[in-house]
Nucleic acid binder design. Structure first.
Length: 851
RNA sequence: GCCGGAGUGGCGAAACUGGCAGACGCGCUGGACUCAAAAUCCAGUGAGGUUCACCCCUCGUGUCGGUUCGAUUCCGACCUCCGGCACCA
């Protein structure tokens, strides 16, 4: 069948509408106290070079939400920008000799073009890039505020070190314990580094999580576990003097959450970095051998150690410590799985009741002593155990505490420890302070100056930004690249004016991403990071969407920054993101798309073949946003067909159907009421799918069903589908049918507009509306029109479907029960049985229970 | 290893609060249109059984078990895959 309408030509209409949106600055906004605001944000992009379909998916989710809210009358801020500092730019510089800035800016230009061709409704005039001086200046300014408050401090800590390249390696650059460039085994090196005191906010971040009602529970759970508040006890084990009666003085402090198992402690384990380890070395027969073993542990792959993916190993120091409860001497071991960063860097080893200790003890034949018996089970024997009994139980062989249940013994023993001066109750966090120092070029210089006379000096605000110096050669070798630039390092002390040295480390890029969403509110401010009243208007972010891989680090750092900014009086709220959606990963060949894996799918070919609207619609239709998906473009053509179907339906209606009368001027037949029911029920469903559930796939399928319904209706009523010229003898369509068809078509076009905005604007214009879909507003549904007259109620026998009843919607339960029991199919399945109960759920089902 | 998820037709998925498993789409099959093809429009499509046909029956949501009148949904154990584990972003 041919229609007297032009074909759907996505390239032409997309170009037209993108141009018009630019010309009218359609998505640029300013603060307007008279309208409700909506801050819709997607996580900004690392400019890796090319956008891929995984990016597109996330940006579309945000665009659908933003466009829908705009149609509902909100003042919508929907900005975009670039997370532009980071390692890949430096890697590219080393590999190809391209300067990081050139590489980054080229990538941004290319990706911006790709995103603009997708027709996303961004306020591009607010675009930011974190590598620009006017952004990173404010990183430095915020660092200084934190420094003033003691929230930024310097401390020694360990980094990955490649002895061949003589450089620090990121965890990502360590492959199977070896340097990714030269394959040398990676060691550890201690450096003085800057930290942010996020632990100061540990309890606040934990409590704040309670109020995040619109966050996915799984993210909150991950964050709670990450903060890892645990209530336990810090206990002191006195160190027994060595063979020469030398004393090390300080006792070993351990932290335990299971003080109730202390009578089963058969060793004390120290982290290799524990200060006592070095002191023990001196008093051994062969200090060199001892130190060699320590060094071997210390230089183990850090990632492997912190993730427990190493063989548990240790050695006996030959020294003894006294169990503070029993006064029994127990051996002190060094163990590679004990971490200096957590707790006190030392643990008491209770093999019977801790799995890691158990494995360690079995390997080295340390005694396994059961001191907690699980309730109601046969007594455990230490020698016969096959795994640690980690559960609470009743204490045995525990002196005066024997017979007490764990829950009672823990506070009692903690109190006893305090009374005897051997320990105290303590809260520990797994959360560690945030190390922000990076020995790299492509990041924000840390604004600190070291003076031999005045010590550590902050750079005065007036001297900000500390700009990145020009560096031409990137070798990937040596210390911080900035340390190689004498004119950068050499400076004068702001305190005494004498010669001084600049800090040469740069900041972790997570600093950039911890507050960028505030900068969007006031992106061109050159006096402050942002004007607080502007953030007070736009903030907090109403909807934030990004990959699930950011569930912990980025989101917890941003929450931390929000609280710091709140303490600084710059923001009024204490949580930055009211609603969070964590998008599932887009995989290709079973792995996340990334340039380094070489499995990215670039949208450009698809845009050229099918247009932006098809790709947008497809990515929303293929799965719910939270779901992880394996990319396939098998269904892309189906989405293109659907849009073509919409195009033909609406074009034919516009060009060949007679004008439709107003709905209230006609009387509706049953078929008209049925179509209206579908139209209004679709409005109801799609509205809640988009803005309550954010199940955009079912929103699209709802629109597809409406289109199918409209096709059938228009064919039966001879509206638009058949050219009247082809069959002049056919009677003209009924006015009432025209009216309900127009209502359905207009609702369809408006609801499709967040997904396929170019096509929808074009069709909306063709329908005779001159001022766009936002002016038209989001359609409302009429509850009267939705109400069904009759419905099908399933009938089960013992939970198995046996019959269906077509009844009036308000059929009373007695009638439903009677009809169900009398149904012949039901009778066939209840024959010879006694009906014991009939469950009637009005409007849902009837279940006949027969035994 | 630890923490958090996911698993449903040939494929992507739906089932929103424990109530008809498989909406919608892809693919496939058939029909209409066409000289023919493409495009388009219409119809069918979980597996197996039964039947001329309509009906109807059995099985079926990763595996095994449990709770319930009723389980994709709740509980327990397990398998596989994915994300995070603090210097990839």
């Amino acid at each position: 069948m041919t229609y007297p309408v032009r074909d759907y030509d996505p390239q032409a209409i997309e170009k037209k509408w993108q141009q018009r949106w630019r010309d009218t600055r359609a998505f640029e906004v300013s603060e307007d106290p008279d309208r409700p605001k909506f801050y819709c944000l997607v996580m900004f992009a690392y400019p890796s070079g090319h956008a891929h379909v995984g990016h597109v998916r996330n940006y579309m989710i945000g665009d659908v939400v933003a466009r829908t809210r705009r149609m509902r009358g909100y003042n919508v801020l929907h900005p975009f920008g670039w997370d532009a500092f980071g390692l890949p730019a430096e890697n590219a510089a080393i590999k190809h000799g391209t300067h990081p800035e050139r590489w980054t800016l080229d990538n941004i230009a290319h990706m911006k073009g790709q995103l603009q061709r997708l027709g996303i409704s961004y306020a591009w005039e607010r675009e930011i890039a974190t590598c620009r001086r006017d952004y990173y200046k404010w990183n430095q300014w915020l660092f200084l505020r934190m420094f003033e408050r003691g929230l930024a401090y310097r401390q020694r800590s360990t980094v990955n070190w490649c002895s061949s390249c003589e450089t620090v390696l990121a965890n990502e650059q360590v492959v199977d314990g070896a340097c990714w460039r030269c394959d040398t085994a990676v060691g550890a090196r201690d450096l003085n580094q800057w930290f942010f005191r996020i632990t100061h906010y540990a309890d606040a971040l934990l409590q704040g999580a309670e109020g995040l009602e619109q966050w996915p529970e799984q993210v909150l759970t991950m964050q709670r576990n990450w903060i890892g508040r645990s209530h336990g006890a810090r206990l002191r084990f006195a160190v027994v003097p060595g063979e020469q009666q030398e004393s090390v003085g300080d006792p070993i402090e351990v932290f335990t959450t299971r003080i109730d198992t202390i009578y089963g402690a058969t060793a004390v384990l120290l982290a290799p970095e524990h200060p006592l380890a070095d002191r023990f070395a001196a008093s051994t027969a062969d200090p060199q051998a001892f130190r060699a073993r320590l060094d071997r542990f210390r230089s183990l792959d850090r990632t492997a150690r912190t993730t427990g993916q190493i063989e548990k190993e240790g050695f006996d120091t030959g020294r003894r410590a006294l169990n503070p409860f029993t006064a029994e001497p127990v051996p002190i071991w060094i163990a590679n799985f004990v971490l200096a960063e957590y707790g006190t860097g030392a643990i008491m080893s209770v093999p019977a009741h801790d799995q890691r200790d158990f494995e360690f003890a079995r390997k080295y034949d340390l005694p396994v002593r059961v001191v907690v018996q699980p309730a109601g089970e046969p007594p455990l024997q230490g020698d016969a155990l096959e795994a640690a009994a980690a559960a609470h139980g009743v204490l045995v062989d525990s002196g005066p505490f024997s017979g007490q249940p764990s829950a009672q013994a823990i506070p009692a023993m903690t109190q006893a420890a305090e009374e005897r001066g051997i320990g105290r109750g303590e809260v520990q966090f797994r959360l560690r302070d945030w190390g922000i120092s990076r020995q790299r070029y492509w990041g924000t210089p840390i604004p600190i100056i070291y003076c031999d006379d005045c010590g550590t000096q902050p750079v005065p605000d007036a001297d900000l930004p500390v700009e990145l110096p020009a560096v031409e050669q990137f070798t990937g070798r040596g210390d911080s690249p900035l340390a190689e630039v004498p004119e950068f390092v050499a400076t004068t002390c702001p305190g005494c004016g004498g010669p001084a040295r600049r800090e040469t480390d740069t900041m972790d890029t997570f600093v950039d991403s911890s507050w960028y969403f505030y900068r969007y509110c006031d992106p061109h401010n050159d006096e402050r990071p942002f004007d607080p009243p502007k953030v007070a208007y736009w903030g907090p972010i109403d909807f934030y969407s990004g990959g699930i891989e950011h569930a912990i680090l980025h989101l917890i750092y941003s929450r931390f920054f929000c609280r710091v900014l709140n303490d600084l009086g710059l923001v009024e709220h204490d949580e930055p993101f009211t609603r969070l959606l964590t998008q599932g990963m887009v995989l290709r060949n079973g792995a996340v798309m990334s340039k380094s894996r070489g499995n990215v799918v670039d949208p450009d070919d698809m845009l050229a073949t099918f247009g932006a609207d098809t790709l947008r619609l497809y990515e929303m239709f293929v799965a719910p946003p939270e779901r992880e998906i394996e990319w396939t473009d098998a269904g892309l053509e189906g989405s293109f067909r659907f849009l073509g179907r919409v195009w033909r339906l609406v074009s034919a209606f516009c060009e060949t159907a007679p004008p439709a009368p107003a709905l209230d001027a006609v009387s509706l037949e049953a078929a008209d009421r049925a179509l209206r029911r579908r139209t209004h029920d679709t409005i109801r469903r799609v509205t809640s799918d988009i803005d309550v559930r954010i199940h955009l796939n079912t929103a699209v399928s709802g629109l597809m069903e409406l289109v199918n319904e409209l096709y059938g209706f228009c064919a039966r009523e001879r509206i638009g589908v058949d050219s009247p010229a082809a069959d002049a003898s056919a009677p003209p369509p009924r006015p009432a049918a025209l009216a309900v068809a127009r209502e359905g078509i207009e609702a369809l076009v408006l609801m499709l507009s967040p997904f396929a905005p170019h096509l929808a604007e074009e069709l909306w214009e063709a329908l005779g509306h001159g001022d766009g879909v936002v002016a038209a507003g989001w359609p409302d549904y009429n509850p009267e029109a939705v109400r069904a007259e009759e419905m099908v109620v399933p009938v089960q026998v013992n939970g198995r479907l046996r019959a269906r009843l077509t009844v009036a919607v308000d059929t009373p339960r007695e009638t439903l029960e009677k009809m169900a029991v009398e149904h012949p199919h039901v009778g066939a399945h209840t024959a010879g049985k006694r009906i014991t109960k009939v469950i009637v759920v009005p409007r849902r089902l009837v279940n006949v229970v027969a035994r």
